[in-house]
Design a protein around this nucleic acid. Structure first.
Length: 557
DNA sequence: TCAAATGGCGCC
DNA sequence: AAAGGGCGCCATTTGA
């Protein structure tokens, strides 16, 4: 393994390298080099790079044309390890791990949001004096590695999770820098078709202005559909006592304003979230470059910063088009979460149902009279904690057919309600409840609690129960997806020109020269099978992936 | 007058 | 079919 760190006190000025053993022992001298190419010149290929954080460490190498094959990301590893100790939100850099392991003052993590600044000499001196004592960064990496290895303690599942997390970080950095192909001209045509020409700043697009007029005409008085307060008051004034203006609430109302209001909401969403301003900000140079933040959701899902990459509306997928001579391989893990539930719970009946390509159809034929929609609602309700309505009523059927799976999620909910912590299949921990949660929930069970206190306590407990119920499924699905993605990334090295360009929870896109698309499609299937074997080794469950080869993302479904 | 909270909705 | 989990982002509202 190669420890690598930027040379301290030399911003942009070189790197320190040291070959070390897997246990963190030095296995060679510390070497100073000036630039990424010189780093490469000194390293045998295929080495695992040990560094503080992929997100900050990798981009200079990637920009220099260097692809890192394997790495060990101390920060991402530390976040998971700390979480298993019930500690969230603490500094997780190598310097912080080193400080905790050696009893030094723990430094703050570098703020990833802070823009790089050019400090004056005065600021620089001030900053230095305020810092924790400077520690050799290579030393910090070695100590952090040894400390983390000790805490991992040969836990096979945890080791798999951590390896996948570091590999995912490489993929995330690469995907952000490569970008998702984005045809601004197509996007603009879509906007014009839906909304009319681009409005002047501060004005509504033509189509929204027309709808606003229709809404006011339908009510007989002025209502601003951008204001939930105004809209609710409007419907109340014409006799509909709604509590919110969510579209599914409004849909149930019988009034001439309903249709234009619903159209307005839909189009206004496109305009504000993914309109011309979004294009200006995010689609430069024919690519959309979101910043992916792997593992930043407590469940282990990725988040993104900027551009809302994980919420691209289906209506705009028309703008995602492969470059000339290339194709997109769109691979989606079908119905991943119920399959994951079947696996983590060990419910053999549900695993049987998951053997086929369409789990919900099989479910429907096994107790829901062939009604696929009902079967799906019931299963989603079981995983999300639905209590009322149709989903609540259908839970009984699931409980009868799949008692092991239902006991699994209901047990997770009870643990959450009582303040316990639950884990994903590979060992990612959910956060413990806050001190105020404990206090308020405890208050509700006191002898002299008021009705309001009891209601509040029950509410908080049930909220946390729904969270932990979902966590065991969502986080285990994220475990699987992370192993899938990192395995695929490794396989793609053998395919010239193939690039991962998008990842969204259980779906990924590979941009590939047309002649290799079939090969890549097969690799997505193979990587899914490997992930199933690694993450659910004892289970009958299947986690099928259905790659589609297309020119345009919109044609994938 | 500003920042924080809220309501709403897109994706999974 | 119902409004149950996780996010990020926008415009509006609230409150200090």
């Amino acid at each position: 393994m190669q420890a690598i760190a930027p040379r301290p006190a030399e911003p942009g000025g070189g790197y320190l390298l040291q070959e070390i053993t897997e246990a963190g022992e030095p296995h060679g001298p510390v070497v100073v080099v000036d630039s990424p190419p010189q780093v490469i010149a000194r390293l045998p290929p295929g080495q695992r790079w040990l560094w503080d954080a992929t997100a900050s460490g990798y981009p200079p190498f990637f920009r220099a044309g260097i692809r890192v094959e394997r790495c060990y990301d101390v920060t991402l590893t530390e976040r998971i390890l700390l979480g298993r100790q019930g500690r969230f939100g603490l500094p997780s850099s190598a310097a912080a791990v080193h400080a905790r392991a050696t009893g030094l003052a723990v430094p703050d993590d570098p703020d990833p949001l802070a823009a790089p600044t050019e400090p004056t000499l005065f600021d620089d001196a001030m900053a230095r004096s305020a810092m924790a004592p400077a520690v050799d960064p290579i030393e910090a990496l070695r100590v952090a590695l040894a400390d983390q290895r000790r805490r991992i303690d040969d836990d096979r599942a945890l080791g798999l999770l951590l390896a996948a997390e570091s590999a995912s970080a490489l993929a995330a950095t690469e995907m952000g820098l490569i970008g998702l192909p984005w045809r601004a001209d197509i996007h603009r045509d879509l906007l014009t078709g839906m909304l009319g020409p681009r409005p002047r700043p501060g004005e509504r697009p033509q189509r929204l202005a027309e709808l606003a007029t229709q809404i006011t005409d339908a009510f007989g008085f002025t209502v601003n559909p951008d204001s939930a307060v105004d809209l609710r008051a409007g419907f109340r004034r014409v006799g509909f006592e709604i509590e919110s203006t969510r579209s599914w609430v409004i849909k149930e109302i019988d009034h001439p304003a309903v249709a234009p209001v619903l159209s307005y909401k839909e189009l206004a969403r496109i305009y504000t979230a993914n309109g011309w301003n979004w294009l200006d900000d995010w689609a430069r140079g024919g690519r959309f470059h979101p910043e992916y933040l792997p593992g930043s959701v407590v469940s282990g899902r990725w988040a993104t910063r900027g551009g809302g990459a994980l919420q691209i509306p289906r209506a705009l997928r028309r703008a995602v088009v492969a470059d000339p001579g290339h194709l997109l391989v769109v691979a989606d893990a079908a119905q991943l979460e119920p399959r994951v539930l079947a696996a983590v719970s060990g419910d053999e009946a549900l695993q049987q149902v998951s053997a086929g390509a369409d789990l919900y159809t099989a479910l429907a034929n096994d107790g829901f009279g062939g009604d696929r929609a009902h079967a799906k609602v019931a299963m989603l309700g079981a995983m999300y904690g639905a209590t009322s309505g149709e989903a609540g009523r259908l839970l009984g059927t699931l409980r009868g057919r799949y008692p092991v799976a239902m006991a699994c999620v209901e047990n997770a909910a009870r643990q959450g309600e009582s303040g316990d912590v639950v884990h994903s299949v590979l060992g990612r921990a959910c956060p413990p409840p806050s001190a105020s949660w404990r206090e308020l929930v405890g208050l509700g069970s006191m002898q002299d609690a008021t009705d309001a206190e009891r209601r509040r306590a029950g509410q908080l407990a049930r909220d946390r129960g729904r969270f932990t119920r979902n966590f065991v499924v969502q986080a285990s699905a994220a475990d699987w997806a992370s192993v899938w993605l990192s395995g695929l990334r490794r396989e793609l090295r053998a395919v010239a020109g193939a690039e991962l360009v998008f990842f969204q929870h259980d779906e990924l896109l590979v941009h590939v020269p047309a002649e290799h698309a079939g090969t890549v499609a097969a690799l997505t299937i193979g990587a899914a099978e490997s992930a199933r074997r690694l993450v659910f080794p004892a289970s009958l469950v299947t986690t099928p992936v259905l790659p589609v080869i297309v020119d345009c993302y919109a044609d994938a479904k």
